[in-house]
Design a protein around this nucleic acid. Structure first.
Length: 601
DNA sequence: ATAGGGTTAG
């Protein structure tokens, strides 16, 4: 009964956005009652069909033709198999075409048919049709199940209807559809999105889960924990981890790996040790993923010796490093500028019989670009096809960025045109690079119109993308335009971060509007955005420039309180101002406090 | 027929 209520709720939810669909005119075509017709007892023996041979659209088409003419008629189950395998090869439209045909032919479709069809709609980002199909079945008396709702929720996420997804999910909880056997779908990283944008409800959900008697399985917990981790709620995740253990659900290596990754991201290596110990106490062995995460953590800190040691350790434990492990090392060396070492790692993996993949080569490409060895990067870029690898979005973006950083703008732009011609889809990284390049070449008007083009395509841009444009506008003396864009950010679904505020503050200071910059600093704090040492340095210098020492000092004091350091340029301006003045011990002491940690005395 | 973890670019 409750699942009916959730269905009604779900339909209502989508109703408001226009409940139009291509199936509504056929409502009632499904012949009820499903159970009678799909009952196995009434089916004569069926010949076997090997669905695994469906590898491409034509196979599916052929098989569908064959099945339609089969005697006796194939069961729903067989048709469902065909739908499912067609969806697996990503021919969603044809799957839906077959679904239409099945309805027309009077095949006694069931809840599985519905779920597969709904899933196809969702993957085509046609969420309304997904809801329409559910509504259609619902009217005919076929009740959606947890999988149906999970699929719809996933579809809402894919359509960026995060709030609706959250509402539907909460309904499921309230109607207890997911309990007690626990079928939450936190998979696919989709929940990370929900959690990120709904931290408080998510935390509420976690608390509810901790208290409730319901026992999700390890997979459901792991997925949820991973979602929390990806949303920066590592401590909430750890707390839930303890709660699940208390309930008698044993985490496995996947659960731990996800948590270890979260702690590594925060640089909390001491806590990582605790978890690794916990694992060995519970007889959960580390696997290749655990080691790769740890090696990556060392590489990110440029501690290549430690990383190599770990590689040895894992080999001693008979855990075979894989391509990902080696790629981590290759990237580590490239980030450190040691390309020759990186090449050695690549050779060593070939010796081990492992084939380097596109990631391996992209890391190397980035290594050359970062060192400014653009011509070598080009040669490397041209070699991809010889290795049997096609340039992907990352390859192009890296190369374009490399060219731009050498101010070879027209070549970079030409490469982008080539990328488009080769049908390699640009993504948010590519766009940020291009926008940044335009701005750094002084073409801010072009950047703005390009930005609008991208937005018109429905691409979701983030802070980095907008930050590139705002920064470009500020640096090119177009503060007014920058501020306009900055003010519009929330309505475009992006909240400004400290970096962006700092860009505007910097531009205001350059204009001499230090008082206004001061207001913006207050505003950013009231929006829960903490200024960084960069921000405070800018403010300090701005007042020093105006010879207003007394207004600069409070910022130095704040920095001392927060344990932030002053830049060398700030300090030298400060010293300048003090020349000729009476020695102020308090000020001297303050200056010492905000001295950078590695400042030579 | 369904479900979770690790590598690259802005």
């Amino acid at each position: 009964m409750t699942s009916r209520r959730a269905a009604v709720f779900a339909i209502d939810l989508i109703h408001g956005t226009g409940f139009l669909n291509r199936w509504s005119h056929k409502s009632g075509i499904i012949s009820p009652p499903f159970s009678l017709f799909s009952s196995k007892a009434f089916q004569p023996k069926q010949p076997r069909i090997d669905f695994s041979c469906v590898k491409e659209l034509n196979d599916a088409i052929g098989l569908f033709q064959k099945m339609k003419s089969m005697q006796p008629e194939p069961s729903v189950r067989m048709y469902n198999n065909l739908l499912s395998v067609t969806a697996k090869i990503e021919e969603y439209s044809f799957a839906l075409y077959m679904f239409d045909e099945m309805l027309r032919m009077g095949v006694p479709v069931d809840v599985y048919t519905m779920n597969i069809a709904v899933n196809c709609c969702c993957l085509l980002k046609d969420i309304k049709s997904g809801f329409a199909i559910m509504g259609l079945f619902f009217k005919s008396g076929c009740e959606p199940n947890v999988t149906t709702f999970n699929t719809l929720i996933k579809g809402l996420f894919l359509n960026h209807k995060v709030a609706e997804a959250g509402k539907l999910f909460n309904k499921l909880l309230r109607f207890r559809i997911c309990e007690p056997d626990g079928c939450y779908d936190f998979g696919d990283g989709k929940w990370a999105l929900y959690i990120r944008e709904n931290v408080l409800p998510a935390r509420d959900l976690v608390r509810r889960l901790e208290r409730s008697r319901s026992r999700l399985d390890v997979k459901a917990y792991s997925a949820l924990l991973d979602g929390l981790r990806k949303s920066g709620m590592v401590d909430d995740a750890l707390q839930l981890l303890s709660a699940m253990i208390e309930k008698g659900i044993t985490p496995n290596v996947v659960t731990y790996n996800s948590m270890i990754q979260g702690l590594c991201d925060l640089g909390r290596l001491e806590d990582v040790k605790v978890l690794v110990n916990e694992m060995s106490n519970s007889n959960i062995s580390l696997d290749v993923v655990t080691f790769s995460i740890l090696i990556d953590a060392y590489c990110k800190e440029r501690k290549m010796e430690e990383a190599e040691d770990l590689l040895k350790t894992m080999k001693q434990h008979n855990i075979c490093p894989d391509v990902v492990t080696y790629n981590t090392l290759i990237d580590g060396y490239c980030l450190r500028g040691e390309i020759d070492k990186a090449r050695q790692v690549l050779d060593s993996m070939v010796d081990k019989g492992l084939k380097p993949n596109i990631v391996s080569y992209n890391c190397l490409l980035n290594g050359y670009c970062r060192k400014g060895r653009i011509d070598e990067a080009w040669l490397h870029f041209l070699e991809f096809p010889c290795k049997g690898l096609e340039h992907d979005t990352c390859t192009y973006t890296t190369m374009i960025h490399g060219l731009f950083s050498e101010r070879r703008f027209s070549e970079g732009w030409k490469l982008f045109k080539d990328m488009e011609a080769r049908r390699v889809t640009p993504n948010i990284y590519t766009y940020s690079t291009l926008l940044d390049g335009l701005c750094r070449n002084g073409e801010t008007d072009e950047a703005l119109s390009f930005l609008h083009t991208i937005e018109g395509k429905g691409v979701d841009l983030d802070r980095v993308t907008y930050g590139a444009v705002i920064n470009g506008l500020c640096k090119n003396g177009k503060l007014d335009v920058a501020r306009d864009l900055f003010n519009q950010l929330p309505s475009r679904g992006v909240l400004p971060n400290a970096r962006m505020y700092t860009m505007i503050i910097d531009a205001l200071c350059h204009e001499g509007s230090t008082e206004e910059a001061q207001c913006l600093l207050t505003e950013m704090q009231s929006h829960g955005c903490a200024p960084t040492s960069v921000t405070y340095n800018i403010m300090t210098r701005s007042f020093l420039k105006k010879k207003e020492l007394s207004k600069a000092i409070p910022y130095l004091e704040v920095m001392r309180e927060k344990g932030l350091s002053a830049d060398v340029s700030t300090l030298s301006m400060l010293i300048d101002q003090m020349q000729g003045k009476t020695k102020d011990d308090v000020l001297l002491k303050l200056m010492k406090d905000v001295l950078p940690k590695d400042f030579p005395s």
